[in-house]
Design a protein around this nucleic acid. Sequence first.
DNA 1: ACAATTTGTATTGCGCACAATATAGTTGTG
DNA 2: CACAACTATATTGTGCGCAATACAAATTGT
Lengths: 148, 148
Amino acid sequence: MINVENNKQLQLDNQLCFPIYALARDIIAAYRPLLEAIDLTYPQYLALLVLWEKQEQSVSQLGEHLDLDSGTLTPLLKRLEQKGLVNRKRSLADERIVLISLTESGSLLRTKAANIPPTLLKSLSVSAEELENLQRIICKIRKNIHKI
Amino acid sequence: MINVENNKQLQLDNQLCFPIYALARDIIAAYRPLLEAIDLTYPQYLALLVLWEKQEQSVSQLGEHLDLDSGTLTPLLKRLEQKGLVNRKRSLADERIVLISLTESGSLLRTKAANIPPTLLKSLSVSAEELENLQRIICKIRKNIHKI
DNA sequence: ACAATTTGTATTGCGCACAATATAGTTGTG
DNA sequence: CACAACTATATTGTGCGCAATACAAATTGT
């Protein structure tokens, strides 16, 4: 026999966490055609966003910004290296550290990528107020969830 | 030379879409320990949520609910079959259709899963008002993004 | 000085996501 | 009935995401 309360909770769950999960995939899907034009995936684009802010960083610094570990970043960065967008070289001061830096080509890609955010923002069609609200709540949830 | 406007946009982008992408991963990470206790991944749990609502569905019906295609669902459902949680059998009426149904074991898992949503909701620590707001904005964005 | 620990990255394995393609089954039309 | 168009699922290949493990380099404690 199924408990009605359990049923309700399992539905509610579906209405809270699933939409966030689905929205994240929707956003990546919305980026896809724009990023394909410059031969990037969304995670690769995110890594470049961080590098455009600061030209040279270690793998672990990139990982802190993106909340990704070396198991994800190492192959991703090797693919960016293959495309000639970044350099990977060991630090002379500390041989354990791999420093990632932008190549000229990687730096120049920033100009081509500049039109992507406004294009995407427009397609989301949310007011500035709603957007701010969304950012605030998401930020709060992420802080709380990290305390677990 | 870097255009200041481009710079701003690329940062703003980072502050809008990245948090949603990161939050989705945070949520899956928060579920992980709870779901490991019943040997499920988050996508597998979502598939079961849908099946708990309606015992028997085709692969494509499941896909519509979850916004996932057969390339993702077929192997996922085969893993659930291996665990003895679902049955996969071709429809007699239309041999192209594969019907997924819950086994007794899969049905019973619902009771064990019932405590997961309230546990998780508590850890998010958002007010009912904020939660409603979040759902409304996400729903709106998803609708808009699907129009593209 | 040197053993124990810590740190930073790499590797492996598994499970999604998703595009592209394949294949089998079904339906509509002449 | 033939057969083209369509539908539902399966397969393949690529790229994450993350846990577990490995390993070398650096740091720490004594």
